[in-house]
Structure formats: structure tokens, C-alpha cells
Amino acid sequence: MPSETPQAEVGPTGCPHRSGPHSAKGSLEKGSPEDKEAKEPLWIRPDAPSRCTWQLGRPASESPHHHTAPAKSPKILPDILKKIGDTPMVRINKIGKKFGLKCELLAKCEFFNAGGSVKDRISLRMIEDAERDGTLKPGDTIIEPTSGNTGIGLALAAAVRGYRCIIVMPEKMSSEKVDVLRALGAEIVRTPTNARFDSPESHVGVAWRLKNEIPNSHILDQYRNASNPLAHYDTTADEILQQCDGKLDMLVASVGTGGTITGIARKLKEKCPGCRIIGVDPEGSILAEPEELNQTEQTTYEVEGIGYDFIPTVLDRTVVDKWFKSNDEEAFTFARMLIAQEGLLCGGSAGSTVAVAVKAAQELQEGQRCVVILPDSVRNYMTKFLSDRWMLQKGFLKEEDLTEKKPWWWHLRVQELGLSAPLTVLPTITCGHTIEILREKGFDQAPVVDEAGVILGMVTLGNMLSSLLAGKVQPSDQVGKVIYKQFKQIRLTDTLGRLSHILEMDHFALVV
């Protein structure tokens, strides 16, 4: 994948999101292997301009796509893939009243899908469409860049269908997702969380590099694949309309690839034109409109599966009536509230959605109805927002919020430890010299600072030695090549209790 991002070429006709291997024109390309080798690009942008032909009021008969309808489940399912879809609609009884809503608040519980998330729908649909058009064949390999849930859905379907599955996901995604993927037989590649989507090191860039190296491999490409919004247009939206008897006044959905909100909203605009569509985008993402909503100094966020630093091709923002931004604290607070007060075992993005819903639905009156999409299960986040310690460490809970008995030293300040200034190293000294210094002084790690004293990161003896043994660096290389740029900081005025929580999850903390 090139470091400079080429513009994806656009073909003359058809839909841009065809499933299957992508040609340089962004659509299915038939021909000899030699032709494909000559024409197939190194990668295709996940934010390529959409060429979708959908228009409100256009006859369904003019759609270029294969459409399906929700099917009634048999008493005995032939395999677990038949437990994807037909998820329950559940009334939220307490939270709406707590925040003064007059309307009825309903939750579409997508964590009841077989793999635990709304992404099971698009995973199965992308595979079925690729099999139907002859792209996927027995023994082929599926590769997908994902925040985890699409990966789980694909790995689940691949396990049943017999495909090899490789999932490329950023490091910030939970260990629970990784464990589930491994249990399903998927191979996992992790990428830096802070890598831009168009960087060769991003999950998108690495996935395309693997595709170019592995024979008979395919990126189904949830960011561009029409099967993504079509899955929701054909099934999720129809289920909502049936469950609500066609009567709903507002739908609120958090947005990642945009397939969920695009597919549902398009069908609702056709069948229930008075329904307002509300999009939820986390602070630090750029999906919301108008652009002024996205202006923030924050560039990272903890909530998973929603928000991006690019506009995915499948996201149709014209069908969203209003956007709201959400933050991590309210997302996790509301997710825990949904679990504790409503018994809905949902993930953090569901918290984002409901946090926005109780604001947006203030305009609705008694007798009206708001539906929220709860995308995934708490299963993926047992060591994250479900953990009091994690919430404390991230600053989303305060010590006084917890009532468990603490040891005698818990409320003492870090400054009472009488710490001395640490050994520091410059980023320009060599790895070999740094190892000598650390061994001589008896230290395992040291902060790396520039000549102005600005902290650049941390270097550890173990990481340097393993990097040297693996051949990633040489003793003569500058130590700046092996620094940890993500590390926890703590102030002298913070409590030892807070430091204790940090050290339970990290090997060190830097006192500043």
C-alpha cells in the first residue's frame, strides 16, 4: 500500500459497493488471473465517493441489488447463522422517566444476534452475496479491517462455511474481542490505534497488504460494500417497522461504517417519512454534520465500534436529520445504567446512543415513540467499562463513588512517597548505550525526554532486548525507535489509591 493515498477510480455505471474482489474501477472485475494482476490496485480507499443510485421515491424494481426479506425461524435451526436477525424490541421503562421523557422509549437489542452484535447481519450478508456472485469459493481466505464486531461476525460465518479468516484490528480494541476471535479460529493482526486510516500501518493498510500477498484472499470491505446497508434496509428496518406496527417518530443510532443508519433510515424514509433520524458520533470522530460539531482538541476516545477519521463510502449522511456528539463518560455511564436499571447487557456504544436519545427525544410528546439501536453486548468489555477499576483509572468514576473498604494508605498523596527525580535518556542515544546505562543503574525503564525536557515516551529494558533479539533494531539504532509513546501519567497530588489502580493494569506510571 502506498504512503500517498491515490484516488480510487470510478467506473461508468453500476453501484460502487459490489461485493467481491475490487477492480481499479471499484466494481467486480472478471477475466484471467493475468488481467486481474495487471488491473487490481494495491488498495482502494474506504472513503471513495459513493456511486449508489438510491433515491427517495425511486421504484424498488430499479435497484441493481439482490434483495432479501426477513424469514421466520424454524423450530430447529440448521446452523447458528440462522440465529442472525429477528432481534427483540424491548421497552426501556426507567431511564426515559428518569430523564423526563414523555414518549415511549424502545430498544432494538442487536446483541441477541448469534455473534453478539449488529455486525453479524452485514457479515453474513457480505459472505452470502460474495458466494452468490462467485467471488468467494471453498478454501478462500477472508481478510477484514475491523474494530472487532464485524470480525467476530465474519469469523463466526467463516467457521460454519469453512473459510480461512484473518482479522486486522487496532490495538485499542478489547482483549475479549481478541479472545472470541481466536476461539472462532480467526487469525488476528493488531495495528497502532493512532495510525491514520490511509497510513500503511493502519488496520485498513495492513489488511490490503495481506490481501496482495495471500492468494485467493478477499477483503469484503464493510466500508464500501453495498451488502452492509442492504442488510439493514432489507431486514433490520423491516423488523423495526413490523415490531412497531409502522408507528415510530424517531430513530437514534450510533454511527461507525454508517451501514446501520443508512440502511434503516432509507427504508424508514420510504415507509415512515415523518420519522426523524438521529445520528450519534463520538467526540474525536469526524462523521457528524455540520462540520463545526467535529471541532475539538480530542483525537482519541475509548468507546469502541463507532466514529472514524474518514467518511466511509457506505455512509449516506443525507438521510440523517440531526447529529449529536457523545463523550466517553456519558457513554459508559449510560451503558452501566442500562445494565443495572433495565437488565440490558449492552456495550458502550449503546450507552452513547441512549445518552443522546434522552436529549433528542425531549421534543417528542406522549403517545409518540423513539427507537434506539443497541449494537453489541457487554461480553466484549468485561475488563473495560464493566470494571470499576478501569473506570477509575480512566477518570470516568471517582473514588467516592465506590463504597468498598480501602487499605490505610489509600488516600495518601503520591508526594508522600518522597520520590527522587528519575533517570532520563535522550532519544538520540543508541539502544546499546541505553541498555548499558539501565543495567549500570539497576533500572528496568526510563523516560525519554528531548533537550527541552519534554517527555516523549518510555523505554524499557525488556522491550529493547526483545527488539534486538527479533532483529527489529540494532544496538547502533537510536533509542527513539523503541519508545512507548502511550503511558499513564500521575500527579504528586493524586492518591496512592489512584496509582494502585493504574499499576494493576500497566507496568509503570510516570509522575509529573
Rank of each mutant, 00 (worst) to 15 (best):
Y223C: 05
S50I: 08
P200K: 08
G115V: 06
T68D: 11
G100S: 05
T150P: 03
E239G: 10
C52P: 02
S23E: 12
R196P: 13
L268R: 00
Q222A: 00
G148I: 00
K247Q: 15
N225M: 05
A24W: 05
L220W: 00
S27L: 10
G185D: 10
L156C: 01
L77D: 07
A71W: 03
R209I: 09
V180Q: 06
N93Q: 05
A157W: 08
S32P: 10
C103Q: 05
K25H: 10
G246Y: 04
H232M: 03
D79T: 13
G116K: 07
R51L: 03
N212I: 06
R58Q: 14
P192C: 08
M250Q: 01
D249Q: 05
S202E: 06
L136C: 08
T262L: 00
E37L: 14
N228D: 01
T68I: 15
G57W: 07
T150L: 05
T262H: 11
Q55L: 10
V90M: 01
G258I: 01
R121T: 03
Y163Q: 01
A38G: 12
P74Y: 02
K269A: 08
D238R: 12
P2S: 12
Y163N: 00
I84G: 08
A158C: 01
Y163P: 00
S27K: 14
L248Q: 08
S254V: 14
F111W: 01
R161I: 08
S63L: 02
D179K: 04
R91H: 08
L106S: 04
G162L: 05
Y223L: 04
K75G: 14
I167A: 09
P78W: 05
C165I: 04
T235C: 15
P2K: 12
V206T: 09
R91N: 15
T193A: 13
L105H: 00
W208Q: 11
K271P: 05
D35P: 10
G100Q: 10
S63D: 09
A195Q: 12
I127N: 05
D120I: 05
D234E: 10
T13K: 08
A183E: 08
P46Q: 02
T260P: 01
G134I: 02
H65R: 01
H203V: 01
P41W: 10
S147E: 03
L154Q: 02
F112S: 01
E128R: 03
C103V: 06
P16E: 09
S175H: 11
G205C: 09
